[in-house]
Design a protein around this nucleic acid. Structure first.
Lengths: 191, 191
DNA sequence: AGCTGTTGAGAACATATATTCTTAGGTGAA
DNA sequence: TTCACCTAAGAATATATGTTCTCAACAGCT
């Protein structure tokens, strides 16, 4: 029997995330992707077929291991505290890096229908999770009765994307934490 | 005397905005930029030196003719109504297109210090304008006294960037308008 | 140990792309 | 009209970049 593969595909995907976050899709050249993943050219094309297809796989995995676990808290956990927790974790994720999915949407959204679909699906899902969380918070009397759930959820979703952009520019994210509190405060029922 | 230049530099910059919005910086190839501006290769390099330098000029002009006029309303006009007006105009700007400055930040922010600086400057300025507007609204008794001005301004700034991303994906922006109302409502003094 | 067939590293290739050069043509003053 | 000098269009060039190919090295089975 022949030699066994010494690379781990998921690990390659994970390592590529940083490269793509730094330089974007077109800015990330194969030489650097190859160099910074424990991989080689030949294996790359056998495994992934093309740079474009590789991007899709990296994005799927990015959503799976980076975004989904953070969003999961919104579904599992309850109320306003869950939203606060979400933002804490999200800020940690995008701090100094930004969000790979958002970057790809802004770079490729017009030309690549698949990226666009990924983006729409992600935003819909996020908004849906916020709605569920707000509903539970409402049931538990944690937020004011006059809060419009859907509009507020969309608002929170926009806010998340804004964080992704800010994360690239802002070294220090303390301000973002304060802003989150200012955001959630008015939703809460008064003392 | 020789023939006079038949191109208008500012017009070329304006025409290039759409190309860059569609394909990003690396995705916009010179052939298309040349083809879609009333211009030619030779003149391009005589006038702009390089694609990179051209981008800086396009971005400066984008800020000047697209972003600055919208922000100006925050400084000129007063109170909550000015903020509402700002969002109305901003949504119109980014609808179906996104924001060129934001796109460049997400694509090039890591590699290009000048873009990063432009981005920081823009966000600082925006936040500053929001603060001024909120201060005046507070003086006029339009918003609740317990609103934290700086945190709220940063929050609004994040929100704006979220719109820029959403604008690329969302064909219909009615929801964004609703979300804005839901955002500003809680700030207002009660009935 | 010897064979087999895959791996890993990088050379090679074809294409794409930014930039420069060439050339035909035209404008406007003398 | 004539001429100087610029423009417009695109060919040419050099480089960058995605993809394929070559080949020595090696792990695992008999």
């Amino acid at each position: 029997m022949p030699r066994k593969a010494q690379y781990d595909v998921t690990q390659v995907l994970d390592q590529a995330m940083d490269v793509l976050l730094e330089h974007g899709y077109h800015g990330s050249v194969m030489d650097e992707i190859i160099a910074r993943t424990d991989f080689n050219r030949r294996g790359f094309y056998i495994e992934f077929s093309s740079k474009q297809n590789f991007l899709y796989l990296v994005l799927e995995r990015y959503q799976q291991i980076k975004l989904a676990p953070i969003i999961a808290h919104l579904n599992d956990s309850h109320g306003l505290r869950a939203i606060e927790h979400f933002f804490e974790q999200y800020i940690r994720l995008v701090k100094g890096k930004g969000c790979l999915l958002i970057n790809c949407i802004t770079e490729l959204g017009f030309d690549d229908a698949r990226i666009r679909e990924m983006g729409r699906h992600y935003l819909d899902n996020l908004q849906f999770s916020f709605i569920g969380c707000l509903e539970r918070a409402l049931q538990h009397g944690e937020i004011r009765r006059d809060v419009q759930l859907e509009a507020t959820a969309l608002q929170l979703t926009c806010y998340v994307q804004g964080f992704a952009v800010n994360g690239i520019l802002a070294a220090n994210t303390d301000e973002l934490k304060l802003a989150t509190q200012a955001l959630l405060g008015p939703l809460a029922t008064g003392p």
